[in-house]
């Protein structure tokens, strides 16, 4: 399923990450999944949150650069080789993955993935009967 992801530009300064989460916490926004990508110059915090639009607005108010983009969320069995099969579907379809992050809980692994052609990827996944996750599935965690 296509879900909304919030990304925030962060300079490499201590305390900035904490500030973002503090703002979200005070606004009663839950973060279901997140990852930080860092370069030598700056970092990008990517998150799946309970209310993306509201989260964007409160962060913007505090002068952060925020962007809401569409990513795909899906689940695979929590077994060796499962993610490999999924990624093969994408590479066979000529879709490149830009980044992904995920976690495993009990029987399943949950993945958030950004690629160059999101709708095509969703179609491929549906064709291969992959378990796609809705936003509300994510928010359960």
């Amino acid at each position: 399923m296509i879900i909304k992801q919030l990304s925030v530009f962060l300079e490499n300064k201590s305390g900035r990450l904490h500030e973002v989460f503090e703002i979200l916490g005070k606004s009663d926004i839950n973060v279901s999944a997140c990852s930080v990508a860092d370069t030598t110059e700056f970092g990008i915090l990517r998150m799946i949150v309970s209310e993306p639009e509201k989260a964007r607005d409160v962060l913007k108010e505090k002068l952060f650069s925020v962007n809401v983009s569409e990513i795909i969320s899906f689940a695979t069995p929590n077994t060796p080789g499962a993610l490999s099969k999924t990624l093969k579907i994408l590479s066979d379809a000529g879709i490149s993955v830009e980044y992904l992050y995920g976690f495993s809980a009990d029987e399943k692994s949950f993945i958030a993935l950004r690629c160059d052609d999101v709708s095509k990827a969703v179609m491929e996944f549906q064709r291969h009967k992959l378990e796609l996750m809705s936003a509300s599935d994510f928010y359960k965690f």
């Binding site: 992801q5 990304s7 530009f9 990508a37 370069t39 110059e41 700056f42 990008i44 990517r46 913007k60 650069s65 925020v66 962007n67 983009s69 830009e98 980044y99 950004r114």
Partner: peptide
Amino acid sequence: EVEDHFYSDRISELQVLR
């Protein structure tokens, strides 16, 4: 200053801009 209209969640895009 990173502004919304050129900010992207893709690092590659930001690097290309730089």
